Amino acid sequence: MASTKLRSRRRADYRFSLEYRTRWSDNDMYDHMNNSVYYYLFDSIVNTYLVQRCGLDPPSSNQIGLVVHSHCDYIAPISFPSVVNVALRVNKIGKSSVTYEIGVFERGDDAVKAVGSFVHVFVERESRKPARRGMGDTLREGLERIKADETARL
C-alpha cells in the first residue's frame, strides 16, 4: 500500500513531464490500464529526459544505463480514453546510479494515480561495469536539474 506521502504527490512535486493518450489496447480485462503500460511509461519518460536534457545518445554512447530496480505503487485506476501526464524527478544521485520517481496523473486531476521508482546504474557499454569516474558530467548536470529537495523525498 502506498504511503500517505506518496498519495499526497502533486504535479508541482515533479520537474519534467510528458503527456500520453491512452489507447484501447492499454486496458486490461478489468477495464483499467494494464500494469505493463505503467512501466512502459516510466521507461519512456526517463529515456526521453536522458536523450533530450542530458545529452545521452543510447546507440552511440560508451556509457549506458541499466535498470537494476523498479517498482510501482498503484493508487487509483486509469482507463481508456484518458489522457495522462507522466511526471519525473530525481530523488537520489550516486557516483554511477540515479533513483528516479515518476508520478502518473490523469489530465485535469491533480491527484496522483500511481507513483513509480526506477533505478539506473550507468555502466561502460562493453564491460557492463560502472566507470571509475562514475557517470559523465553532462549526464550528472542534467539529472541535478530535476533533483527533488531533501525534504520532498520519501
Score class of each variant (00 low, 15 high):
Ser79Asp: 12
Leu66Glu: 01
Ala76Gly: 00
Glu126Ser: 12
Lys113Thr: 10
Val112Ala: 09
Arg53Trp: 01
Gly136Ser: 09
Val83Leu: 14
Asp149Asn: 11
Pro81Thr: 11
Ser25Met: 11
Phe80Thr: 11
His71Pro: 00
Tyr100Thr: 11
Ile78Cys: 13
Tyr74Asp: 02
Pro59Arg: 05
Arg132Leu: 12
Ser70Gly: 01
Glu124Gln: 10
Asn62Gly: 13
Asp109Phe: 03
Asp57Val: 09
Val90Met: 01
His69Gly: 10
Gly136Met: 08
Glu126Trp: 00
Tyr40Phe: 14
Ser97Thr: 07
Ile102Pro: 08
Ser127Lys: 04
Asn27Leu: 05
Trp24Arg: 11
His69Ala: 12
Asn62Trp: 02
Met135Arg: 01
Glu101Cys: 02
Lys147Tyr: 09
Ala87His: 04
Asn91Glu: 15
His120Val: 01
Glu144Tyr: 00
Thr22Leu: 08
Val83Thr: 15
Tyr49Ala: 06
Ser79Gly: 07
Asp109Thr: 08
Asn47Trp: 11
Thr151Glu: 14
Met33Asp: 06
Leu66Arg: 06
Ser70Lys: 12
Gly134Val: 10
Tyr20Ile: 09
Lys92Gln: 15
Pro58Gln: 05
Gly142Trp: 07
Tyr20Val: 11
Arg53Ser: 13
Ser60Val: 12
Asn47Ser: 06
Asp31Cys: 03
Phe118Cys: 00
Val46Gly: 06
Asp26Val: 11
Ala87Glu: 06
Ser36Ala: 15
Ser25Arg: 08
Arg125Tyr: 01
Lys129Ile: 02
Ser117Phe: 10
Asp109Gly: 03
Leu88Ile: 07
Leu41Ala: 09
Arg53Gly: 02
Tyr20Phe: 14
Val90Tyr: 02
Phe122Asp: 05
Asp109Tyr: 04
Asp57Ser: 12
Pro58Leu: 08
Ile75Cys: 03
Gly55Pro: 08
Gly108Ser: 03
Tyr100Ile: 13
Ser79His: 13
Asp43Ile: 06
Gly65Phe: 06
Gly103Glu: 05
Ala148Met: 09
Asp28Trp: 06
Val46Asp: 11
Glu150Tyr: 00
Tyr100Gln: 12
Arg145Gln: 15
His120Ser: 01
Ser61Asn: 08
Glu124Cys: 00
Ala148Leu: 06
Val83Trp: 04
Pro59Met: 05
Asn62Ala: 10
Ile64Tyr: 01
Tyr100Val: 13
Gly116Ala: 09
Asp28Met: 03
Glu141Trp: 00
Thr99Ile: 10
Pro59Asn: 09
Val67Thr: 07
Asp137Arg: 14
Gly65Leu: 04
Ile64Val: 14
Gln52Arg: 15
Ala114Glu: 07
Val90Ser: 06
Gly134Trp: 00
Asp137Pro: 14
Glu150Asp: 15
Arg53Pro: 09
Lys129Thr: 07
Pro81Ala: 05
Val112Leu: 12
Thr48Arg: 13
Gly65His: 07
Gly103His: 03
Glu141Ile: 02
Met29Trp: 07
Ser36Glu: 13
Pro130Trp: 03
Phe118Asn: 06
Asp73Leu: 03
Arg107Phe: 03
Tyr100Phe: 15
His32Asn: 07
Tyr38Pro: 00
Gly142Leu: 02
Lys129Arg: 13
Thr138Leu: 12
Gly142Lys: 05
Arg89Ile: 00
Val84Pro: 03
His69Val: 04
Glu141Gly: 08
Gly55Lys: 06
Ser70Thr: 12
Ser79Pro: 00
Tyr20Ala: 13
Leu41Pro: 09
